[in-house]
């Protein structure tokens, strides 16, 4: 998706910048978006839903290792291979097309990996909460699809958030989705102030803690209801 948007917006911005974005700015924005998505994306909700339906969750519950820890470990284990395939291509693309757009501010360069790790945690926790809902409702995947719809719009996945009309911008700031994509991307592109960075990193952390609590409650309630049907 970012690649489609990249083609579209760089064409629009060829003659004159759109808002604060030049054609080259868009290129850098979407390449970094793609990079952040690749580093933070996981689809544990599909795995959880399938395993709950087929009863395979039973085998995980039998082991002296929390299933959610196992899921996150499996997700992280896929990361090196994903990075090995995608990182070199993206680094080359970024350096040939958008090098001037990247920040040289050392503080932001340190903040970027931090924000990516917290984004991964946020994304994983949201997925795990929706996955745990599969223990309680029939179609957690539909909830996931609605959630992803909101994510696409309000995370900056489709359009940089500062191109939104003011009211939508305000709404996006209130929702957590921008913390999962727009914020790390803007950090690497140097489009945030130092003050914003520390505020948003703290906000990410606060969300992580809140989501952990919600996940714990949902998971426990789900297990009480879990029927482990079949066999």
């Amino acid at each position: 998706m970012p690649l489609v948007m990249l083609a579209l917006w760089s064409a629009v911005a060829r003659d004159a910048p759109v808002g604060a974005w030049t054609s080259q700015g868009f290129t850098a924005y979407y390449i970094v978006s793609l990079l952040v998505r690749l580093l933070t994306g996981s689809w544990v909700v599909w795995q959880m839903t399938m395993e709950i339906r087929q009863g395979a969750l039973a085998m995980r519950l039998l082991r002296p290792l929390h299933p959610l820890v196992a899921y996150s470990a499996e997700n992280l284990a896929a990361m090196p291979l994903r990075a090995a395939v995608s990182l070199p291509i993206m680094v080359v693309l970024l350096f040939t097309n958008g090098r001037a757009e990247l920040t040289r501010d050392p503080l932001l360069l340190v903040a970027f990996p931090l924000s990516v790790v917290l984004s991964w945690l946020l994304w994983f926790l949201f997925q795990a909460i929706i996955g745990a809902l599969a223990l309680l409702v029939h179609s957690a995947v539909s909830i996931m699809e609605i959630w992803f719809g909101f994510f696409s719009v309000f995370s900056g996945y489709l359009v940089p958030l500062d191109l939104f009309p003011p009211w939508a911008r305000t709404l996006a700031d209130w929702l957590p989705f921008h913390l999962m994509l727009s914020f790390p991307v803007r950090t690497l592109l140097g489009r945030v102030t130092h003050g914003e960075v520390s505020a948003l990193l703290s906000l990410q952390l606060a969300y992580v803690i809140a989501l952990l609590v919600i996940l714990r409650v949902t998971w426990r309630a789900g297990l009480r209801r879990y029927a482990a049907f079949g066999g």
Binding site: G55, A58, M59, L62, P64, G231
Partner: peptide, 19 residues
């Protein structure tokens, strides 16, 4: 309660499930 020490001392083998 699925205490870790408990899980380490039991096993459940189901002919139709696999680990």
């Amino acid at each position: 309660r699925r205490a870790t020490d408990f899980l380490k001392q039991i096993t459940l083998v189901m002919g139709n499930k696999q680990q």
